[in-house]
Design a protein around this nucleic acid. Structure first.
Lengths: 333, 333
DNA sequence: GTGAAAGCGCTAACAA
DNA sequence: TTGTTAGCGCTTTCAC
């Protein structure tokens, strides 16, 4: 394993020149440059990044905190992050936290111990979620919520939920249910706000029975469907907004199993627009979040922060898209 | 930002003692240990891992090469890898290669430049895929195929495909189609082998028209369905083995759209058992790969290799499970 | 059980 | 434009 000294010796220049030839070639004469490159070739030199990063006080690595990597939406955001980081010569350390606080702390330690230069958090900010923001830790939140007290990239969740609910109302539905995430989850709160606003604007009183709590998994969506199935048909919502596509898919399964047809007896709208939603039966009407773009924007923000630059804005809102497919149909008395 | 010297000064010991207190506490007296820990507390010391790793010639990081992180099966394997690595104090650098050779090389460079100690490749070994194995690069292949010329963890792909095909035959199907990945893909080759073996054993001649090439995406599965739809009904397979669940889901969509009912007119079997398969309509019969276990086993193998230990075996085969759900039914003349 | 000291391979003043 | 040199913060002999 050759080092910079070997290269310098073979090239007949100083190690400083070799170092410069690699990191700032424009400050080195053409002649030296060639000698260095030839020497590098000859001794098969590969710079030791461990040493370089140590010297530069930079890891050129970030960590991304993901609640669950098997969730397609998160995976897609991560892809966006990774794409930008790769282009900038940064590595992305995966921190699949499995919703465990301990794991989050473990990964954050990587930043504190300099193994990573910053962190992107894919879990929405929660009050009492004191882990971030944290002094000395450069962080950006991706796909989170309103009032995040550190830089973040997101969509207008309340607006999106309102858009979807408005649409169901326009289809003639009067009783509209909702499947939420955990009740304290900020996504639940923001989206519920939009849902309620829509109903209120339409002069419809919100009914507690219309809200079923899930936890953003298909399984919990299926369970949530049971809740609605237990309601008397004349009180049962005729349409449901699910706060993500996974739960919508689970709910469809649940309704089907109980003989409730989707969309004939029950319209359903999802949230996120993960890939499988268009292949679901029926194809899911949903709010499309620009997942990859969110990841890219978050990555660019973090990069700027790491370089010590100012951010133009610290609450960056990207547009969502409302995609109508087959799971939502007009109410038929 | 305090360093080891500050701690030593406050504790009234040498930096060597501080170092030992952290890396080999058993070699330090109780008394010194306490002084050191108190000092660490007092000056808020966080060891600089960049320096430590540099000194130890270890990155305590591995990179995982994933063709597509948005694919649930891959994401699940990665979760397994990450879980084991985390427990051993190793970070996992994400290398989403998007099936691009250039990206793979880029990420492999991290190992060559010591930023990572080894690599786990989730793409099956291909002849002419000369990128791995490579001298000086510690690597393990996960979820690959037969005859991988470096350590690997996988299932018996041919056997699994045969199991699934045998099952369709036992259901009375005589014309059985298959949706493959790209024809040169080793997974395609291995699984096709099992499929053909099954038919041959049953005395059925394989028909070229029964094979539709996909590329492991839902979209390509839908396209593959078109191929079968174009065949005359009396020549069309009555059952199909899809080489992954995504394509199976896409194919179901395609058949449905053409008025071919699944499973009544067409039985379908998938491969992988990703989470959504049980929620699909109809729920997918499939080969369940122990994705997370494959990841864990691969991680443990790599760890052993990094520590310079011998491997007990270098082709580690894990059991698969055949999961019967609703997408496969008996042939009804 | 502890401390002094020699680097790991590289970058970045500074001087030439 | 180039070379000399002093470390970055830590681990690890080696001697005590």
């Amino acid at each position: 394993m050759s080092n910079i000294r070997d290269v310098a010796k073979v090239a007949g220049v100083s190690i400083a020149t070799v170092s410069r030839a690699l990191s700032a070639p424009e400050t080195v004469s053409k002649k030296s440059l060639k000698k260095v490159h030839d020497a590098i070739e000859q001794v098969q030199y590969k710079p030791n990044m461990l040493a370089r990063n140590f010297r530069r006080h930079r890891a050129f690595t970030i960590v991304v905190l993901v609640p669950n990597m098997a969730n397609t939406f998160f995976a897609t955001v991560v892809r966006g992050i990774e794409d930008v980081m790769q282009q900038h010569g940064f590595g992305v350390l995966l921190g699949d936290t499995r919703d465990q606080r301990k794991r989050e702390e473990e990964y954050l330690k990587l930043v504190e111990t300099r193994q990573a230069d910053g962190v992107i958090q894919l879990r929405p900010y929660w009050e009492g979620d004191s882990i971030l923001p944290k002094d000395d830790i450069i962080a950006v939140n991706a796909a989170g919520c309103e009032d995040t007290p550190y830089p973040c990239v997101r969509i207008d969740n309340a607006g999106a939920a309102k858009t979807a609910t408005d649409y169901l109302l326009s289809l003639g539905h009067k009783r509209i249910g909702v499947i939420t995430g955990l009740s304290e989850n900020p996504h639940t709160i923001d989206r519920l706000k939009g849902y309620r606003q829509s109903l209120t604007d339409a002069g419809i009183e919100c009914c507690d029975e219309w809200v079923a709590e899930g936890e953003f998994t298909m399984w919990s969506g299926l369970n949530a469907a049971q809740h609605f199935i237990r309601l008397a048909p004349e009180e049962r919502p005729t349409a449901i907004l699910s706060m993500n596509d996974e739960m919508a898919i689970g709910a469809i399964k649940g309704f089907r199993a109980a003989g409730i047809k989707v969309p004939e007896d029950m319209s359903i709208i999802g949230f996120d627009d993960i890939e499988v939603s268009r292949y679901a039966e029926p194809a899911l009407t949903t709010i499309a979040q620009p997942a990859e773009e969110i990841g890219k924007a978050a990555a660019n923000m973090l990069l700027r922060l790491i370089e010590g630059k100012e951010l133009r804005q610290s609450d960056y809102i990207l547009p969502y898209e409302f995609v109508v497919r087959s799971s939502s149909v007009p109410f038929t008395g």
